[in-house]
Amino acid sequence: MASVALPENGSLPDGSSGKRAWSPWQKWGVILLAPYIVVFLVLVLYPVGYGLWLARHPASYVKLVEDPIFGRSVINTIAFLVVAINIKMAVALALSGFFTTARTWIKWLSVLFILPWAVPSIPTILSFRFMLNPEWGIINSLIFRYTGLDGPNWLNDPILALSLAMVVHVWKSLPFWTLILIAGRLAIPQEHYEAASVDGATRWQRFRFITWPAIRTLYLTCTILSMIWTLGDFNSVYLLTGGGPADLTHVLATLGIRYLRLDQVDLAMAAIVIALPGILPLIYFMMKRLSR
């Protein structure tokens, strides 16, 4: 076997004593990554650290727990999460089946269906709010015209008001989750359905044995992610009820901002920190799902 006589010690390019300094590729990687690292440090890590520092006094928590509004907000938040999200996801699952039906008019409807998600919250939520106005809102006007009765004072009843906030929330975020579940359904190979049809599966059996196993994980992930985001949904409650009547419809998101507006930052942060044990498992789950 031929072997070329190599110059002993090699004619290595200058400066390279074995291990090379950072290659230009690594160097540019760091340079291009740097802006986000700065953003993260200055606009995420510092605020979070500062916030936790503000929430360091045990007294804040005592004061918080003694505030009756806090207890009510926790109950409201849990109710909101459990009811609104499950209804929303179940409807999104059903509608994703509807929207994957091949019809031209359904395609057009799906284009329209996205609107609530694409437009800003504030005008549409205000629109809801005016519809629900007890005196001149369109709903009570219609009730009066057709029954001669006065409609309920929708937003003056805490249970009704919170339920309506959930309706607003579902209206706003349903399109997004439906879209995701549509994508999940479309990823299922058509042959699976064809094979099932040949085997004589009914509509329900096709869903039960093909669709559901294929998108079950996606559905769970969506539910968890939606819980995280719904915890941060300030608009649906604040813009519809403002936390009222009598601060009975606050959720943690609006409560924190309420304390902030009252210049009780320690309470605001304490309200958030108290929620952490609830959120962290959800975040952990999402991190595990996405960072694989």
Binding site: V44, G51, L225, I228, F234, A253, G256, L260
Partner: peptide, 10 residues
């Protein structure tokens, strides 16, 4: 994954 309203305060 930080809820937006929670980050708003800090």
């Amino acid at each position: 994954f930080i809820p937006a309203a929670f980050l708003a305060v800090p």
